[in-house]
Design a protein around this nucleic acid. Sequence first.
RNA 1: CAACCGGGCCGGACAGCCGCGCGGGACGGUCGAAAGGCCCACCGUGAGGAAAGUCCGGGCUCCACAGGGCAAGGAUAACGGGUAACGCCCGCCGAAGGCGACUUCAGGAAAAGUGCAACAGAAAUAGUCCGCUGCGCCCGCCGCAGCAAGGGUGGAAAAGUGAGGUAAGAGCUCACUCGCCGGCUGGAGACUGUCCGGCGCUGUAAACUCUAUCCGGAGCAACACCGUGGAGGAGACGCAUGGCUGGCCCGGCCGUCUCCGGGGAGGUGGCAUGGAGCGUGCCGGCAACGGUACGACAAGAUAGAUGGCUGUCUAAGACAGAACCCGGCUUACAGACCCGAUUGCCGG
RNA 2: GGAGUGGUACCCAAGAGGCCGAAGGGGCUCCCCUGCUAAGGGAGUAGGCGUCUAAAAAGCGCGCGAGAGUUCGAAUCUCUCCCACUCCG
Length: 115
Amino acid sequence: MEHTVALKQNHIFRRLYARGESAVGRFVVVYARRNGTRTSRLGITTGLKLGHAVDRNRARRRIRECYRLQEERLKPGYDIVVVARSAAVDGDFREMQRSFLHQCKKLRLLKEEQT
RNA sequence: CAACCGGGCCGGACAGCCGCGCGGGACGGUCGAAAGGCCCACCGUGAGGAAAGUCCGGGCUCCACAGGGCAAGGAUAACGGGUAACGCCCGCCGAAGGCGACUUCAGGAAAAGUGCAACAGAAAUAGUCCGCUGCGCCCGCCGCAGCAAGGGUGGAAAAGUGAGGUAAGAGCUCACUCGCCGGCUGGAGACUGUCCGGCGCUGUAAACUCUAUCCGGAGCAACACCGUGGAGGAGACGCAUGGCUGGCCCGGCCGUCUCCGGGGAGGUGGCAUGGAGCGUGCCGGCAACGGUACGACAAGAUAGAUGGCUGUCUAAGACAGAACCCGGCUUACAGACCCGAUUGCCGG
RNA sequence: GGAGUGGUACCCAAGAGGCCGAAGGGGCUCCCCUGCUAAGGGAGUAGGCGUCUAAAAAGCGCGCGAGAGUUCGAAUCUCUCCCACUCCG
């Protein structure tokens, strides 16, 4: 990924849940907040409710792929947390991408020329 | 052909584009004084039969003991073998189930001792409620004596059947049968039997216990190393310079530097091609397995690498993701294939 | 990844081989107290599911997380599985 690193620290996750803006979709929930740098940080949460390790891994990969395919349309400099819902495991992928893009638009994460 | 039994093996493949972890890395780029680091085309490689549960056995590390015995606690349990070891595997014996192939079994000791066996029943490890027989008289739903066959209760009632015997009866006696113990026979052994002798004993040790064998404890978040800052200790410097205390000086505190120090965050090692491992042939063995020759074997992350789109294969669809490493067990599981056996039917 | 603890009625729970649908408390219903309520005191009922029934009671069967096993008999003993919770950076 071009301008994105992994978001790992638990306290940043907590801050996003508490203070960030969110958008809920059928597949995932997106939290976002400006972080004051030129790179974005992406964190993915796949809770125990989704199933066993295989299902959680799959959800995480699909979310990462979703983000990768849309990354160049997004503005850099945000902390983003994506929480998987159960449809993220085995729902239709193209529909999932559309839904994700729509949520990003709602949070004003898209670059100017795209809006 | 059908049904059933046992064992083995696989559990998606191929192609295209984009993307990911690890190892290598030309030309070049970039950072740096240098050593070297980073980026990069490309190449190699990349989850399981259960990776799972963490139920056993080891390796490894630290702690304790450093020798032996006893006690406590725990584990295992027919017998013989295999193994580094095991509670695993193989063979075999016994019991139970199945027409059979075969399957299942915590399967040592109850005749060393202790405990428990509710309710029912007369009685639960020990004698008598109904009853049977004899005798007595005040002839009654009576008393005394004998009996343990029959009835009834119960999961279990003091071997079973027949005959003799008797007042009535009883392993009281006899025959056969059943079970237990000892001898003898065969076997490596558990066991066994057209044999001999003795005995007739409730069940429960997944109750205590006894017998035999084994076991020190904790775990890779173990453990080892590096370690900015901050707190602490020691020393030096300056008082030429600043701040606080003070009217001022001395002094004290803050200050600057060096060393010591246990070590939070973080990092590195542990940690990865090799292991009590796997495949094939041959030899030994009924087998588990052992020996030998040859061959193949690069996952190693640290928020944790395999995804997305498309096509072909008649169809792609189960359970499911390595986290220090091995040997097992258990549990989950769509489908495909192979081998061997049993029973039934039909045909030759 | 590793180590451990516990599942009993609507809730909190006792029971640790037979008399156990299973103590006790909360809860629920009625009464007293109060102008009314809360608190307090007293009395009482059912306890889940199925079967039988027009409906209920009584009775019967099954139920102590689930499934096997040991025993004459299991909430209790043993094994396997499921779920919840705690600790180790």
